[in-house]
Design a protein around this nucleic acid. Structure first.
Lengths: 333, 333
DNA sequence: CGGCGGAATGGGAGCGCTCCCAGAGCATTA
DNA sequence: TAATGCTCTGGGAGCGCTCCCATTCCGCCG
C-alpha cells in the first residue's frame, strides 16, 4: 500500500504538504502542487479512509435507514435512495445502507462507532417509535417524512396535507360534488404512516369546506381488491364522479379495470393521483397528478445534513409545496 | 468519546485485554471478561471504526454496486439488496451503497481507499464492460449474474438456461405445440443482459428439441405494448396455447388483458412465468412459476465473499437450479 | 540595516485501535 | 528442586493520516 509518506518522499516535500494539497486547507504554490499531484498519479496513491477518519474525526459516510417493508412502493423508495446517493457523492460522501428491520439501534450503532457522520431516515411514521431514540444520536439526523412530533428533529417532506386539499379542491373546482379517495393498504394507515394520514386529513378538510360528499377507501394491491374497491366507490346512489388515488401500485390495475367496465376517463370519471411524474405519464391513461419530487426531496435532505455537519443548526422542517400537472384525466362536470 | 483505554482503566486491566475480550481472539478468564463487559456497559463504550480499520486493516464493510437503471424490476432488486444487507450483518459487516451510474470506478475507489473489504456487483451483463476493471480490484469481488467471460471472477446466479428449458419443457410435456415467450423490454436484450439472453437460449433450445413452434416477443411495460404483444402472440394461424413470461412488471397487466379478452387461464391459454414467489402468488390468477430466489442468491453471494475474505479462493461459478411451483395456470392440451 | 508581515513549507504528536512479544503465576513432570 | 508447559495478562509499537506549531525566506518600511 502506498502511503502519504511515500508520496511525500517521491515529490520531495513533507507529509503535511501532501496532505494539504489533497485537502486544499492551505495554499500551496502551483509548482509544488503540480509535483505532488504527479507523484500521486505516478505511485497510484489512494488515501486510506480509516486513517483519515481516525485523524480527522470524519468518516465521509452518511447512514441511510431504508424501509424494506410491505406496502411501500419500491420504485419510489429507490428514487429517493438514488437521489440521496448521488447528492451525497456530490459532497464527497458515501452512503451506508441500514435497514429498518435490523432494528432501530442501527442509527445509534453506526454513529457511536463513528462509521457515519450523520444519518438520514426514510419513511418516518406519525408516531414513530424511533424518534426518541434518534434524538439521542450524537450526530445530525434528518428525517424524510414528518412525524407528529416534529419539533425535535429536522425533517423534509412533501406537504401532503396541502396535496390532499389541492386534489379535492381541483375536483371541486371542476364542479364535482361526490368524490372518493382510494388510498394505500389499510396496514399503512394502521401503523400511522405520516404522509398517508396527512394527505387524508387535507382531503377530508377540503371536501368538508367545499361541501363535497367524500368517501375514503384504503386498497390493497391486487386485482380483486381493486375491483372490490371500485364496486364500493361506484355503488349506485353514490354518484361518485371524481377519484383521488394515493397508491402507486394499483394505478395500472385501476385504469384497466375502469376500461373493462367501459368507464371513460375523464368522460365518466375524473381521476387525479399523487405519484412520481414518470409513473403518471406511462399509465394506460396519463393521469393528472401531483408529483412526488423524490429527486428534490433526497437532495434537500442531503443539503440539510451537510449544513448541520458544517455547523450547529436548530431542528428545521421543510415542506415542499405540491406541484399539480394537468394531463387531462379530470374534466368539468 | 470513551476509548478503549478508559475502559481498561475502569476495569483495572490493560488495553489489550479489553481488545481481546471484544474480539475473542484469545481466551480470557470468565472473571476478567465479566469485569470488562461491565465497564463497557457502564461507560457506554463503542469501538471506533476508523481506528479499528486502520489497525486491523479490515473495514468490516462490503461495497454493493446496485443498478438503478430502467427496465430492471425495482422490487426484485430490493429483495436482493435486503438479503445481502441482512446476510452481511450476520457476519458483522455493513454495506456501502454504490450506484452503477456513478461510474465503474466506484468499486475501485472504495477498495483502494480501504473503505470496503470486498465488493458485490449486481445485474451483470453478458459482455459487461466493468469486468476488466473489476479484475484489477484488489479485493474479493462477487458478481450476481453471469457474464460470458465467467472464468475470471466469482459469480452466483440462477441457472436461467435451465429455467428456459424447463418452462418450454413443462409446456411441451402438457402437449402444447405452439408456444411463445414474452420477455423483457427490447433494451434489456440489446444491452446483452446476461440472464435474459440465457433464458432465451434455453427456451429456444428446448423448443427446438421438442419440435415446438416458438416465438419470442420482447415487451415494454405499459398497457398498449402488452396489448400489442398479445395481438402478435395470439394472431390467428399461430395457434399459441402456451405462454412463457419473463417480465415481472407486466404480469398484472397481461392477466387483466387476457381476462378482458375473455381468455381463460389455463383453459384457453397456459401461462408460466419466472418471478419471485410472492409476486406469482398475488396476481389476479396465481401463476405456475419458477422462482427467482433472491433471498438465497444474496445470501450465497455474501457467503462467497466471506470465504474469499477468510482465505484466497479461485474464481467459482454457482448456478442455482430452478425450482418450478405449479399453481395451476398451465393445463394439458 | 534591523525589524516586520506574509507566503510557503516542514516536523511530528496524536487520533484509538490491534496484535506481537513478553512475563507472571501455577501445576505437572523429571 | 528445577525444568517444563499451561493459562492468563500487560506493554506498547505502529497502522496512515490531519493539523498545530514552528521555521524559512521573501520584500518592504522606517
Amino acid at each position: 500500500m502506498i502511503t502519504i509518506k511515500e508520496v511525500a518522499r517521491h515529490a520531495g516535500v513533507s507529509m503535511s504538504t501532501v496532505s494539504y494539497v489533497l485537502s486544499g486547507k492551505r495554499t500551496i504554490s502551483e509548482e509544488t502542487k503540480r509535483r505532488v499531484e504527479q507523484s500521486i498519479v505516478a505511485l497510484g496513491y489512494h488515501p486510506n479512509a480509516g486513517a483519515r477518519a481516525l485523524a480527522s474525526n470524519r468518516s465521509q459516510v452518511l447512514g441511510l435507514v431504508v424501509p424494506l417493508r410491505s406496502g411501500v412502493n419500491m420504485p419510489v423508495i429507490m428514487q429517493f435512495v438514488a437521489s440521496i446517493v448521488a447528492s451525497a457523492r456530490d459532497h464527497d460522501y458515501d452512503v451506508l445502507l441500514l435497514t429498518k428491520e435490523a432494528g432501530p439501534g442501527e442509527a445509534h450503532r453506526v454513529t457511536a462507532r463513528s462509521m457515519t457522520d450523520a444519518v438520514i431516515v426514510m419513511d418516518v411514521e406519525s408516531d414513530d417509535p424511533r424518534i426518541p431514540e434518534l434524538r439521542t444520536v450524537d450526530a445530525p439526523v434528518v428525517l424524510l417524512g414528518m412525524p407528529d412530533d416534529h419539533e425535535v428533529l429536522s425533517c423534509v417532506d412533501l406537504d401532503f396535507a396541502t396535496a390532499g386539499r389541492q386534489m379535492a379542491g381541483h375536483l371541486a373546482d371542476l364542479g364535482h360534488s361526490s368524490i372518493a379517495l382510494i388510498g394505500s393498504p389499510p396496514a399503512v394507515y394502521e401503523r400511522g404512516t405520516s404522509y398517508a394520514a396527512r394527505l387524508l386529513a387535507g382531503f377530508r378538510g377540503e371536501a368538508g369546506k367545499r361541501n363535497l360528499q367524500a368517501s375514503v377507501h384504503p386498497c390493497e394491491p391486487g386485482y380483486d381488491s381493486v375491483a372490490a374497491c371500485l364496486d364500493e366507490v361506484l355503488a349506485p346512489g353514490r354518484d361518485t364522479t371524481g377519484l383521488v388515488v394515493h397508491n402507486e401500485a394499483i394505478l395500472g390495475t385501476l385504469l384497466l379495470e375502469l376500461r373493462r367496465r367501459s368507464l371513460d376517463v375523464p368522460g365518466d370519471l375524473s381521476v387525479i393521483t399523487l405519484c412520481p411524474d414518470d409513473v403518471a405519464e406511462n399509465l394506460p391513461v396519463p393521469l393528472t397528478s401531483i408529483a412526488v419530487p423524490a429527486q428534490e426531496l433526497g437532495a434537500i435532505a442531503v443539503e440539510m445534513v451537510m449544513a448541520r455537519l458544517a455547523q450547529e443548526h436548530a431542528p428545521e422542517v421543510r415542506l415542499l409545496q405540491p406541484q399539480l400537472t394537468d394531463r387531462g384525466s379530470t374534466a368539468a362536470r
